[in-house]
Design a protein around this nucleic acid. Structure first.
Lengths: 256, 256
DNA sequence: GGAATAGTGTCTTTTAGACAATATCAC
DNA sequence: GTGATATTGTCTAAAAGACACTATTCC
């Protein structure tokens, strides 16, 4: 106990206190599925979310977000990182706080204020894990499907909120990076954005992202050691220039 | 207790649980101080934060953010709204979740995961309250001053995070609205933005915010009942056009 | 050569950026 | 008229938007 029992002005035992501090993690990934046609083409991409089938009360047998209880010796962020590793087997991925869920009665186990996080995981980090898991208990679901399932707790709301968040972030922050390889073509970048934000459409996309002064520096061309431009013909007949994110992020303003 | 004692798979009493669920509220306002010169001019503006002097252990006598403990029957948002009313006497103001603070040891009273909120309050709502409060215990401090004070708990960090947040929001969301009267001049809007983001500078500001196609609709001219343009000479010799926010918010994108 | 994807040329309209010029009104 | 602030004119450079065109490579 951290409580200082000598103090009379405050004692936690006088008040009703929470019954735990759970975290829930929305793990997004974008899967790639090669097209049937034997021709070179970008693969089909789909936004997926990882769910776990509960083994214990409450909501036993139902699908739920991975998560767990925060310990007294860690922050909620530490907890989310720990759970992400334990339940999805991935480390050092992009994760950020999403929202706090504290509606009374949201958890039959008692008074539980949950801290939801949003993790973006490149499919290459999940692929190994998926094979080793019992596919019955840990599974990726297409987001659209997950949103129609009956999930444990208020996890449907959490996933909906997380989806809105990444749709917003996809066009205002360079999170596309998390779903792409280090080096990618403009076509791949465009496709990833559209996978998360289907309405996204930019004519002359390549020009805006490479030539426009104010955006200049968001991505840069990749070159070989000898200085020549590095290209890839993995997905197309004509080879396409490879780019990488630079770390620079243009500042946005409604007053421009 | 909400706990279902019949269930054997889970019992909160088996685990260490938090000693409370506090909220802390960073209440920002922008004060107006008429200039000494008898001439018409925009007032001096200053970003201020409301602090409360603690009466009880811990940090007795030190300045701290207003806040309190969440009840089992409310959400953390409800709690923040309740505390905002109790401690600052204001209702229905702009407030949003800032961040969760859960570093072990951050509160000498025990294991406390705090939910910080950021409230933006127009000075006209605070003015009455300020007079009625014992000025010794509830006080507005210029933000720069607050950041140099020794505050209770980790409230210094919270205020710093809140400041970063509103600096970001001030140029990407129409929060300037919260600090302005319903109808305002371009000069006032510009000044409010600069009060929060001193580095903000836009040449031809009026044109960007009124004529530019993509921003068009963020603010609109105010007209009299007869359709003539409504102007104000409160702060200038030549009367200036009054504007109001429309509710429309331009969408931003790093890929434009 | 045809098909498929990558990338460029080119023209028009809109916006950004810089400042000079004009408008209004208290004094 | 002077001084102070608000607003418009004007010119140049940059960017957006549309779309036809060329480039590369697999078949």
């Amino acid at each position: 106990m951290n409580l200082n029992e000598n103090e009379t002005n405050y004692s936690a035992s006088n008040y009703r206190t929470p019954d735990g501090a759970p975290t829930d993690i929305v793990i997004f990934t974008i899967t790639s599925q090669e097209k049937e046609t034997g021709k070179k083409a970008l693969p089909n991409r789909e936004l997926q979310v990882l769910l776990i089938r509960r083994k214990v009360w409450p909501y036993e047998g139902q699908w739920a977000l991975p998560g767990g209880f925060t310990r007294e010796t860690e922050t909620v962020e530490d907890c989310a990182i720990r759970e992400l590793k334990e339940e999805a087997g991935v480390e050092r991925v992009h994760m950020e706080f999403l929202k706090v869920y504290s509606k009374p009665g949201r958890d039959p186990r008692g008074w539980m204020i949950s801290h939801a996080f949003c993790a973006l995981v490149n499919e290459r980090y999940l692929r190994d894990r998926r094979a080793s898991d019992d596919a019955e208990d840990v599974q990726l679901f297409p987001l659209s499907e997950a949103l129609e399932m009956e999930l444990a707790f208020d996890h449907h709301d959490i996933i909906r909120d997380a989806y809105r968040r990444i749709q917003q972030q996809m066009v205002t922050e360079p999170i596309a990076k998390e779903f792409l390889p280090e080096e990618f073509t403009i076509g791949e970048l465009y496709q990833i954005i559209q996978t998360v934000v289907p309405a996204f459409e930019e004519k002359n996309f390549i020009r805006k992202v490479t030539s426009t002064q104010s955006r200049k520096g968001l991505i840069e061309e990749v070159r070989h050691a000898d200085g020549s431009l590095k290209q890839s013909n993995q997905y197309s007949q004509r080879a396409a220039q490879l780019y990488r994110f630079t770390g620079f992020v243009p500042e946005l303003s409604i007053y421009s």
